[in-house]
């Protein structure tokens, strides 16, 4: 790279002022074993795919027949509903439990701890079976003053459908996990933030909603996204209640009728994969949104990288100037440069 182009343009003043050394052009280090491993893995993958596509047992014909079956797409809708409803309830309940856990009142704290102990300490499948037996345990739901004649007595079976039992069962279990996630998020926020808000005369509620929770979100969002994805898959367990209108239950029911379970498992898996993929994309954007003001993204200080990268920046930023594509770290001439030393 010659020095002539650089000296011609005022844009090209390097941070050091002096002329720069030539960029390093070394022979890259070879990694022969990496390539060998890669080839073997790709070969195995191709073999598997080719084999699977020809294997009778997978029943690709039935897969194609049922993948867009109306019953299946409706079941997918139920899976989404179960996930959304139970996550909403779990998040609200989780925030409440987290705040209870951080309370100064030992009884409130203790009750939250007890809840977490029970719901995290037993399997979700067992809990769902219990919810299925809810009407057996509590056949009526009474409204009134304890130990007196109830004002209102309702049959549990009329009051709560199996669908809502499934939602409640999933939500209560999930809320215990959400509580720990939210608590970790709140505790991650610097104590000084709370103090600054308090010193400004903000109330506890204002401090929480405007200062602490938005910052805690950065910590809370990634694991919550994982919880949503995990919840989507956990909905398949509601057959324990038994509720079978969601994806897995429905595909099982169909497969029993046609005596061919494998293609319908594949159908269900394909739908689950579709949804989890969408959720992963959504989570990426959410994480980006909540990391405002933090992290490495420093737009003001770009352009102080190595020559090779600033070269590219120069090309992009000065498309009109044909000759001076050498280097253009023009952002490094920060107006407040003295303070960035």
């Amino acid at each position: 790279m010659s020095d002539s182009g650089r000296s011609a343009t005022p844009l090209s003043v390097s941070p050091n002022g002096a002329d720069q050394a030539e960029a390093i052009k070394a022979i890259r280090l070879r990694h022969p074993w990496r390539n060998v491993v890669a080839v073997i893995l790709v070969a195995m993958l191709i073999l598997f795919v080719v084999d699977a596509s020809q294997r009778e047992a997978y029943g690709w014909e039935n897969f194609g027949k049922y993948i867009f079956d109306k019953r299946i797409s409706q079941a997918a809708g139920y899976t989404i509903l179960l996930t959304v409803y139970s996550m909403i309830i779990a998040i609200i309940l989780g925030v409440t439990l987290a705040v209870m856990r951080l309370s100064d009142n030992p009884v409130v704290k203790g009750i939250a701890w007890l809840y977490l102990w029970v719901f995290r300490g037993t399997p979700v499948y067992v809990q769902l079976v219990f919810w299925g037996l809810f009407a057996t345990i509590y056949s009526t739901i009474d409204v009134g003053i304890p130990f007196t004649e109830p004002w209102l007595s309702l049959e549990t079976n009329d009051l709560i459908s199996v669908f809502w039992l499934a939602v409640i069962g999933l939500a209560l279990n999930e809320s215990a996990y959400m509580a720990e996630i939210v608590r970790a998020g709140i505790l991650s926020v610097d104590k000084g933030q709370d103090e600054a808000a308090t010193a400004l005369g903000m109330s506890w509620m204002q401090t929480m909603t405007r200062v602490v929770i938005p910052q805690a979100m950065r910590i809370i969002i990634p694991p919550t996204g994982n919880e949503v994805i995990s919840m989507l898959k956990t909905t398949s367990l509601v057959t324990a209640i038994p509720f079978s209108l969601e994806l897995y239950g429905r595909s099982r029911d169909i497969s029993v009728v046609i005596f061919d379970p494998i293609p319908l498992l594949l159908v269900a898996s394909a739908w689950y994969l579709l949804f989890t993929s969408i959720l992963m994309v959504g989570q990426y954007f959410l994480e980006k949104r909540f990391s405002r003001g933090v992290g490495q993204a420093r737009p003001e200080k770009a352009g102080t990288e190595t020559g090779a990268i600033t070269l590219k920046t120069g090309v992009i930023q000065t498309p009109g100037a044909a000759s001076n594509t050498e280097i253009a770290p023009d952002e490094s001439t920060d107006p407040t440069g003295k303070e960035h030393q």
Binding site: G192, A199, L200, G201, G293, V294
Partner: peptide
Amino acid sequence: PREAARQRRDIGMVFQRFNLFPHMT
């Protein structure tokens, strides 16, 4: 707490570690 907050409104405080809210401009 509400009355204590009312008292604090008239008193400005500047901290050693600045304690600006990082998620706000």
